[in-house]
Write a protein that binds this DNA or RNA. Sequence first.
DNA 1: GATCATAGTCGTCTGCCTGACGATAAACAG
DNA 2: CTGTTTATCGTCAGGCAGACGACTATGATC
Lengths: 242, 242
Amino acid sequence: MIAGMAPYDPSAFPPFAVTVDLVVLTVRSHALCALAVRRGEPPYQGRWALPGGFVRGDEDLSGAAARELEEETGLRAGSGVHLEQLATYGDPKRDPRMRVVSVAHLVLAPDLPAPRAGGDARSARWAPVEELLRNGEEGALAFDHARILADGVERARSKLEYSALATAFCPPEFTVGELRRVYEAVWGVALDPRNFHRKVTGTVGFLVPTGGTTTRQGGRPAQLFRAGGATILNPPMLRPEV
Amino acid sequence: MIAGMAPYDPSAFPPFAVTVDLVVLTVRSHALCALAVRRGEPPYQGRWALPGGFVRGDEDLSGAAARELEEETGLRAGSGVHLEQLATYGDPKRDPRMRVVSVAHLVLAPDLPAPRAGGDARSARWAPVEELLRNGEEGALAFDHARILADGVERARSKLEYSALATAFCPPEFTVGELRRVYEAVWGVALDPRNFHRKVTGTVGFLVPTGGTTTRQGGRPAQLFRAGGATILNPPMLRPEV
DNA sequence: GATCATAGTCGTCTGCCTGACGATAAACAG
DNA sequence: CTGTTTATCGTCAGGCAGACGACTATGATC
């Protein structure tokens, strides 16, 4: 607050609560999965929801998202984990208790050990997004979180096309085959291994060979790569028609 | 509010003001322009800013954006005018008076007569985005609006590549040349008229011929088109390298 | 009216990228 | 040793984009 400057008249605007919700995506055993937490209190008590929480008075939005992410998963945004703002949801009736505006964020993370439950006694799990979005009624996500999750998944799908973000789903070192399985899981399609290999190794800045090789899936050992500096792919990866 | 359900404890979270800000873009005389309004009160009194205002207690975010748009310009979202959510800005210090979270929206509109000033005595104008973003110091936009405008412009630029939104910058009926000048103004490049014509007329669903012809620029009369039903372009328009 | 300038529209050609798919390489399981 | 699995290299045809020539139809100028 700047001295000598009149603050807003508090009666001139309605008060809002502002939260962040997280769509945390990863690829586990060939399926795109999202992090869900079980709600411990009403409304929607006992139902699954996206992790999230209130934005504090002194933190910015991405800071709040990073804090929630670490509280819920132990993940730290930045090193290999991608965090970006997704969209903001502010329907007056989205929370039955009061007016809440939620700034949803999208997190892409490598497959990691079990999630850890948050500070309160809620449990958390990775669930295939297909399952979370399919459920009607009982199994459905709380609030408008199904919509938020769907938007996040769609964002992730399109971002794989023209950005190098698929590497955020991979460990620091990975093979071309592992990267291909990321694309296949997120897009839900099968890709030709030979064309995929030609494409990703031919795109400058996408992959950097580390020199090592490994055999993680049986078969011939594969070269190991790290993510290159490129963030946008030109030309883009092409998602096969449905 | 649902009867019998306890409301949030108001002391459990900090109160926020939520606003919408608008990045209204149009193409005027070969330049990408944005709508700017002059601030009538502190802070930043007398400086140019993006139009916007508080979200009311009973309206959703896109409703608030549509209302502000109509108040400031008389434009109604929907018929030819495109409105979409852009991003949300919530740095704790972005407004010196109090904690304000702003949900920015992007509007693409055809070139229209002079903007009309809002309800209060502020004046409004269309200004080339290059000018609004170039200015340091005195001519710069208020708050973090230069950042918001830059994000909106970047969104518009990339959306022209893979969506049919360029038609939102055109009147209901337009020629291929006018559409090309939209791309040239937004991207800041020159495009080959022959290849452009082949590309846009060959993309199914992008353009629908109306049968009429017109001469608006001198030279041979051009066919008139309306926007087709397509919303995404596949394959996309390619922005030439810089 | 002839000529020029301006815009629009249609073709051609060449290079590059993609999708389909054959072939080889290097591991493991039996 | 043989079959299976995965990785990697090559080949080939079709399609699209960029470069650019050619022709058409208007208004402007002399």
